[in-house]
Design a protein around this nucleic acid. Structure first.
Lengths: 201, 201
DNA sequence: ATTCATTATTGAGTTTGCTCAGTTTTAGGA
DNA sequence: TCCTAAAACTGAGCAAACTCAATAATGAAT
């Protein structure tokens, strides 16, 4: 055996396994109980690592949530991009991107809110945070793509509009004001605002 | 003496004085060191009350910041409203409301970010939070006022646009991405987005 | 003035995210 | 195989927001 040319020793393999156990533990516990109801100790226990070890793999509990939730966010974006490409109406296409994102951040509403909060307010130097920001950028790029189908909209204007749409989406998903609404109602609130932005264009 | 008809006994007076001491202590310490660098113990000490007493007057450290910062926010809004009323151009008028708000939340950037974060993510049942939300509503109303000067914009559209502008303002002030910008640059970023929203209207 | 129910205050104690000094494990050279 | 430096791991301990059982102050009724 061991015909593996890659420099992967026991050490590297162990690290990888630990990261996987931690990720799995955090994913399960967060989605079952919500991020606020889970202690880092519980995660460490289930991952079978020391309490301190956790923080070698993610610098904070928030980073741990980013690590876990980025996967779901990325999936939602992918679905949205695919859906949008098949829709000609601009507003409908934009909302096809928005919808899965709203949904994915409201499956466990506390987690979604905390995730987005961390994305805006957390430390952007941390690796999982960076990945989350990259995903956000990808969403804006998708908005720009749709907006640019209309050649009357300049690149600069499309970029500004995409930013504004992102801001509206963020607030509509996270604000406590909208906590009681259904996913569809939140999407409706966003659609209304985006619709007005596009009016006469 | 004591020709005061109001039912204000020693008890009520003491409570009022304590609240004032706490408010003063929090205001001074927060603005001098930033909310994250101040402990509730320090505030209690300077206000000359027990550590537990603090939480009878504000349910959390965040509520304490809301209590303190609401005053500055209200002042900024007032100035903005006054300035906007003397400006005919719609975009300029909107930005006259935005500018003081951006400024006031960037005097001590950490406090401004935490304040706005708490406004969106905190417990809206708490009294000082409610007041903050009322101030936010007042800002949106001011936006609506300006937008409604153009009778081609329906009431519903004005309300939707006002919400969107608020969202853009929130993100532009708080996002870590813009941390390095000057106040003027942040205002510029907002102006660009609001300008595009209003284009062709 | 005395009693006493109500309200306000207190600070020691709890919880929990996170740190760090000490220990164990690994890889590779002699 | 043994030695050693570097890397990884650990859990006791720290800090700080917040709680709560015990205590004190208040004011109305007698």
């Amino acid at each position: 055996m061991q015909h593996d040319a890659a420099p992967i020793g026991r050490r590297e393999r162990n690290k990888q396994q630990k990261l996987e156990r931690i990720t799995a533990a955090a994913t399960e516990l967060f989605s079952e109980h919500g991020v606020d109801e889970v202690t880092t100790q519980q995660i460490a226990d289930r991952a079978d690592v020391g309490a301190g070890t956790l923080f070698l793999y993610a610098k904070s509990k928030a980073e741990l949530l980013l690590l876990v939730h980025n996967v779901k966010f990325a999936d939602a974006i992918e679905r949205g991009e695919a859906a949008a490409s098949g829709i000609t109406d601009r507003l409908d296409a934009l909302m096809a991107i928005v919808s899965p994102i709203v949904e994915c951040n409201r499956v466990q509403i506390e987690n979604g809110r905390t995730y987005l909060r961390e994305l805006v307010f957390g430390d952007p130097e941390e690796p999982h945070h960076r990945e989350g920001l990259a995903l956000s950028a990808r969403v804006e790029a998708a908005f720009v793509d749709v907006l640019q189908r209309d050649e009357r909209i300049s690149a600069a204007d499309a970029a500004a509009l995409a930013r504004a749409i992102s801001a509206v989406m963020f607030i509509s998903i996270t604000a406590t004001l909208y906590r009681g609404l259904t996913d569809e109602e939140v999407v409706g609130v966003i659609r209304e605002q985006v619709g007005v932005m596009l009016a006469h264009r």
